[in-house]
Simulated assay, not measured.
Amino acid sequence: MPDTADHREFVKPFVYEDLGTKALHFSICEIQSRMQIQRPHALDLDYTRTMMAFLLFVPPPELMGMIGLGGGSLAKFCHHHLSGTRIKVVEINPHVIALRDQFQVPPDDARLQVRRGDGADFVRQTRDRLDVLLVDGFDHEGQPPELCSQAFYDDCRAALRADGMLVANLHTAHPEFSRHVARIERAFDGDALFVGDGECSNTIAFAGSGLSAGSARPGVLRKPGPLDRQAWDDLMPAFARVVGALHEQRSGAQGRTDR
């Protein structure tokens, strides 16, 4: 992908390390990514664990797109656990990409490609049809407007296979949060689920036909096949919250139908 952002100045993130973790920050008040030093492939922040709940709705993807590298938590986890998945990561900030070795993001190989580029351009221009698209693109000012416009979400749907799924990390306190929710619902004809993370700062949007046709059922929580027991123990509370939100949404829809 051509580099379309040479004219911009990018803020350099910094790394904060303590005895057990290493974190990427743009400001001391906001953590962009955090890694457990002894378990570098684990997902340490709850919103990332919640995003992986797409495995409840769709099969392990053959081709996955990611917008936003950060400390590489999701890219590492998927590369490690989803052995049959090819992953294309687009990150606009070159200073973030420069830190990939510090966060033990594996080098590019046949299954992982990290490229510098604009996420909005990526979904608009890609010729591939993605099985899953993870959007976690934040900068020092929060959610870039280019990654939460109606055109962007429309392009996300167009970049997916018919049965593909968008998973987007939204900032719950954003002043236009409700507008972002409405745009996703419009782009996906209402086939969307919104789940708050356990830390109450992020909301994860799942959008796509897999919500209605997928394997997730209220009251049923099974370990997805690609995950080992330790990963499942880490992810299960977040996945249970997603299943609970799905149950609440379906119950509400049924109640409106019965009136």
Rank of each mutant, 00 (worst) to 15 (best):
E9S: 13
A159C: 13
H171W: 15
C156A: 08
P107Y: 05
Y47G: 00
L221N: 09
L134G: 02
V167G: 03
R250A: 09
F122M: 10
L99G: 01
P61T: 06
S27A: 14
V243K: 03
A120T: 03
L160V: 07
L134V: 15
E30N: 11
R8T: 06
H41T: 11
R183P: 04
A238Y: 02
D3M: 11
A207Y: 00
V220E: 12
F14M: 06
G20L: 15
A245I: 05
D154E: 13
R39N: 14
A120N: 11
V15P: 02
R157V: 03
E199Y: 10
R256L: 15
V15I: 15
R34I: 07
P107N: 12
P2W: 07
L56G: 06
P237I: 10
A5R: 09
D228E: 12
Q36M: 11
D18M: 08
V135P: 01
G244W: 06
D154T: 15
R111S: 10
I87G: 01
G225S: 14
S83N: 13
A42D: 14
S33I: 04
S215C: 11
Y16N: 09
G219K: 07
H7V: 12
H81S: 08
G164Q: 05
D136Y: 05
S201N: 13
A253L: 15
R217G: 02
I67F: 01
A213N: 13
A168D: 10
L133S: 04
L211D: 01
L112H: 02
L246M: 10
S33N: 07
I97P: 00
S178R: 14
M52Y: 01
G119I: 02
A98N: 10
V58P: 02
G225Q: 14
Y47W: 08
R179K: 14
A168W: 00
R157I: 01
D258Y: 12
V89H: 02
I28V: 13
Q125R: 14
T203F: 00
D108A: 15
L99E: 01
G70A: 09
R127G: 14
P237V: 10
T50W: 04
I37V: 14
P145Q: 11
Q249P: 01
L133H: 03
G210V: 07
H95W: 08
T203P: 03
L24P: 00
G214F: 05
E141R: 13
T21G: 03
D121Q: 09
G210I: 06
I31E: 10
V90G: 00
L166E: 00
L227T: 01
L56N: 04
G84E: 10
H80K: 12
S73H: 03
W232G: 06
D6H: 15
F77V: 06
V89Q: 04
D109T: 09
F152D: 00
P106E: 07
